[in-house]
Nucleic acid binder design. Structure first.
Lengths: 338, 338
DNA sequence: CTGAAAGCGCTAACAG
DNA sequence: CTGTTAGCGCTTTCAG
């Protein structure tokens, strides 16, 4: 058992002071080439690596980012986590992960736990933030950015896709295809993504004098989305359905085809939102609005780094436009390029 | 900006010593009810919470578990991560996450970074461990357990499903259904799961005098699995295929149906391994061997906790039996219950 | 450039 | 039970 090697031990072996060792391992250091060599060699021989926790204590920077995430069954999130973690790792940060329930509730406790670890920043993905919480983080001096959620009336940075514009695109697409009896399967109504997508969708329909033919709530789960589909198609079914996200849309597609025996897009057009990997699988081939995860991640990380490293404090709200991806779950209007 | 509150500040407000405050917040403490009350109140008023990092420094216990995971596009892993994180959170530990490439390579660097955070333990999911690495962790006194991988010739704990037995089950099932021309689409051949599943599969076939009719390598990716499928069915196609995991099997199913125009299970039976959520979606309805994720997680956490808290040091290798889940992607032998 | 010294916030003996 | 005293391993003035 070699146990942990300290900078003191390296110092002794290299014949220098402990602070010399520290300098060699501190980025903005000043040490003569000779010292650097001696120290590096001794460190290698001993297998020394600086203790990040000790460094964090004195420097006040832990290089840990707390990530709160819920709704992991929706592939969009594992995907985002992977990208976020990579981007952060690339900048020398690491991710301490906290899984939360989709419904607020325990978020407060979770954020407290995160704060206990002296994280340098927090990314909250797919969870709602109370203004109280945002205040607490601000008080603790820990920047926080919301990923794929935004919050009205709270001075907090957020990065989302342009959900309102996305909703509009879908409405215009469905309208152009000639659909008039249009249904919507909503997600969890507490989510800003749900509200914005639906608002844009409804607004664009209204501009063409069309109102929603039917509506059901799927709460962002496959089960509830399937139930909603059954209810919606029990009588006077719509010719087209906008499902608030792909995860639910996959279940809607399956319910329509295998349970109700309908043809998609022959009998009904289905459009989702997110463009998760499964949406492009041949069995689904789902028309959807892509959330540009890479750019969302890049923006999120940049905002966070700005706040951590430059001390920027003004909240930024970014909404990135995402393209409509034309596939075969929805009738394609004449003249639209595939 | 209220900034961080220290135990010293709480002590002053409560009119006690700083160590009294520490005791109140330390589980195995000894403090009079009066002190506890005074301290708790002062702490609440100030919004004090112990600094986990400082505690870690002196106690030597960070209550952080490093989790290395690769291959996140396979739903089995996000799922496992969620369960692992919850189980650990439940025991007062938190997860620092590191994403790695499936192919070893950078694992070494990753483990070093993890060790820098003075983690109390490491869980390595779906990655191969060099014996050198295992040695390094042992030297650092950090227990490690392999999740869904095992490693020959290395004294390291591991938790997997019983992949050999699973492979056998699939062979017997296919044989009982009357198939004789049987193909296999392998995953990445460096993975123990691949080797064990295939070994069990081949062994059971052999007992019935059957040898593999065809074999392709899918490397655990959908793309390569699709390529392998095309090649395998180009001429003299098999009547049944065992795909080394569900993630690839989904792609195989899509390729068979939508590209090659074959009927499953009419023309060919397909069986996977894992039982990821998508396997039960009506579009796939994939027959597969379930990996009992909950039990695997429970065992993993228990082994780790034993090593951390009791100092247990002997490596344990657990292989948990998983059931064959009968669905409709494979012909069901007469007399088998659904 | 380099060593000595002073902590970061907290726990753990150690006397009372 | 409670306060005092040492540090955990490291970064950072501060004199040389």
């Amino acid at each position: 058992m070699t146990t942990k090697v300290t900078s003191q031990q390296v110092a002794e072996r290299a014949g220098v002071s402990q602070s010399a060792v520290s300098r060699v391992f501190t980025p903005g250091a000043s040490a003569s080439a000779k010292t650097v060599n001696k120290v590096r060699q001794a460190a290698n021989e001993l297998g020394y690596r600086p203790n990040v926790l000790a460094r964090a204590m004195v420097s006040g920077k832990s290089r840990i980012i707390g990530l709160v995430v819920a709704y992991f069954e929706n592939q969009f999130y594992p995907d985002a986590l992977e990208k976020l973690s990579n981007a952060l790792q690339h900048r020398g940060y690491h991710v301490l992960i906290f899984l939360a329930d989709k419904t607020a509730g325990n978020i407060d406790a979770v954020v407290d736990e995160i704060l206990d670890y002296q994280v340098d920043g927090i990314i909250a993905a797919s969870v709602a933030m109370s203004s109280d919480l945002s205040k607490r983080c601000r008080a603790a001096g820990v920047p926080m950015v919301l990923f794929n959620r935004s919050q009205d009336g709270v001075a907090m940075s957020s990065v989302t896709s342009d959900n309102y514009a996305g909703g509009r695109k879908i409405a215009e697409f469905l309208l152009a295809a000639g659909h008039r009896k249009i249904g919507h399967i909503a997600g969890w109504e507490g989510a800003s993504t749900q509200r914005d997508r639906e608002a844009g969708f409804i607004a664009a329909l209204a501009e063409h004098g069309v109102t929603l033919h039917a509506r059901a709530i799927g709460d962002f789960t496959m089960e509830r989305a399937a139930e909603g589909t059954r209810a919606m198609f029990a009588n006077d079914p719509p010719e087209a359905v906008f499902v608030a996200n792909d995860h639910m849309a996959l279940a809607v597609l399956d319910t329509l085809r295998f349970e109700l025996g309908l043809d998609v897009p022959g009998d009904v057009s289905v459009v989702g939102y997110d463009d998760v990997p499964a949406s492009s699988w041949p069995s689904y081939d789902l028309t959807t609005v892509r959330q540009p995860a890479n750019r969302m991640v890049a923006e999120t990380v940049e905002i966070l780094m700005d706040q951590i490293e430059q001390g920027t404090t003004d909240p930024r709200r970014i909404a990135i436009d995402g393209p409509l991806i034309l596939r075969r779950s929805a009738r394609i209007p004449k003249g639209w390029s595939t």
